[in-house]
Design a protein around this nucleic acid. Sequence first.
DNA 1: ACTAATTTAGAAAAATCATTCTATTTGATC
DNA 2: GATCAAATAGAATGATTTTTCTAAATTAGT
Lengths: 284, 284
Amino acid sequence: MAPSALPSNYEDLRTVISTRHDLLSKRLRQIAEFALANPNDMALETVSVIAERANVQPSSLIRFAKAFGYDGFSTMQRVFRARLTERQPSYRERIKALKEQSDTPMSAITVLDRFTEAATHALSHLREETRPELLEQAVELLANAEWIHVIGQRRAFPVAAYLNYTLSHLDRKVSLIDSVGGMVTEQAKNISPNDLLLAVSFQSYAPDTLAIATQARQQGSKIIAITDGPLSPFAALSDVCFEVEEAQVESFRSLSACMCLSLSLAVCLGYRLDKNTNFDNLFA
Amino acid sequence: MAPSALPSNYEDLRTVISTRHDLLSKRLRQIAEFALANPNDMALETVSVIAERANVQPSSLIRFAKAFGYDGFSTMQRVFRARLTERQPSYRERIKALKEQSDTPMSAITVLDRFTEAATHALSHLREETRPELLEQAVELLANAEWIHVIGQRRAFPVAAYLNYTLSHLDRKVSLIDSVGGMVTEQAKNISPNDLLLAVSFQSYAPDTLAIATQARQQGSKIIAITDGPLSPFAALSDVCFEVEEAQVESFRSLSACMCLSLSLAVCLGYRLDKNTNFDNLFA
DNA sequence: ACTAATTTAGAAAAATCATTCTATTTGATC
DNA sequence: GATCAAATAGAATGATTTTTCTAAATTAGT
């Protein structure tokens, strides 16, 4: 009765359920239909809740699971649960794995291997986790700002410089607060309430950047932040906050994902400002 | 103590947790960090499993939930569970949906999708095409140089700035030729025959960078170039030349691969200089 | 350095939940 | 329509899980 190999991922389970659907008894067929139609319920609800929603007895659900070879409902439920998490293949764990194989001596090419791999993960994480609305809100703020001020210090500076570069190719007024000559405070004075501050900052959050953002917030300027997590002080300070989990091997963090996000932002803004723009000559 | 309205969706909960993070007691803060980093675990595992993974007592999790106004852990867990079902369709589904409505020119998220995809290709290209000897030669030159001068202009500047940042964390003498105050020529005069020039340049090769590289070559300084192809004038000028095929969508070129290479170079150099170095405090 | 207040750990209790079991129903076969 | 096998319902059970509670530990204030 039980199938040879019991399905351990959702796709397989789906197939098996569909295939055997016609051969099932009335009540089990009813459950099969419910399961395929409501995989979320199957994953998250308790036996009695699912039973109620599917109009069956709780015990039928156990019979259902056993009919497919599982030793109980909970075992089958794992498959439904895995479906909910497997679409983002646990970025954190893969990075952790990278860290753990660090006892092997590092040849030059190994280092490059590790970093390209880590960066690839960071990129796919960026792609999966960035909410479209966030991007659109950011683009809207960028489009409406009278003047855009970009700041980023230390490790964040290359990102800020890049944003400054790309944005200045669109017809927005942009200035980079680069603190040349120790003029941070003076440069920050130029930020007016109708302006936008584009702040890039990572742990351990440069005090200047934080101070300027705080000041900008107080006087009512808009703020877009590119930072490294929900616990960043910029998460609370900003109107739109991009949390970029950057590639990391041991204690070295890359900037690949940030650069990618920055370029994307600029290009989106380009489209937003003029949908017919021919960009061929920009970013030359 | 309890907040007025208790968050009923994940985004709100996240915000509340971030905001109150600093005010929480040690153990609760620990849980807050775990929760934000592992929302999947929070959604699907039992109290005791989560407690184990987060290295806290089960009862602490209940205290945590109550601290945020919920009447028990299960109530809070619902919020984490809801996140899994309200999730946006996965990346693949998103793209499929977008391709079908091909009249929509470029939505924000499509742009990001394209660029992350392109950057991923660029990274794997970088890994596959970079010859190990090239990296090792570069590291050797970097290790032996008396002084390292980094130059990059316009689009290449962020890469140069990043190299300057990472290299200056190792005990090498580095300076960035940033042409502040139009002092390019003056800054370039500091390059002596025992020094190394690390030049970053892409089409259409900034004249200043090219001029300085030429001059450096003539006086016998070593040159490492990061550039964009065999046809680059830097290919012939340099001792070691990295040809990075950068991610490109339409006419927009990213810098993800360059940033990755730069970091790798710096880390390799770190290992080369001192194989026992503890890097934990570098690149903070 | 001492006291009071808060926080935490861990075991014990309460609640919930999955599963089993048996009486009953359904449906097929002769 | 009688008989048997299979399927089902629903209560009872047993296991797991959440929550409570108290003693110990930590922290802050005087």
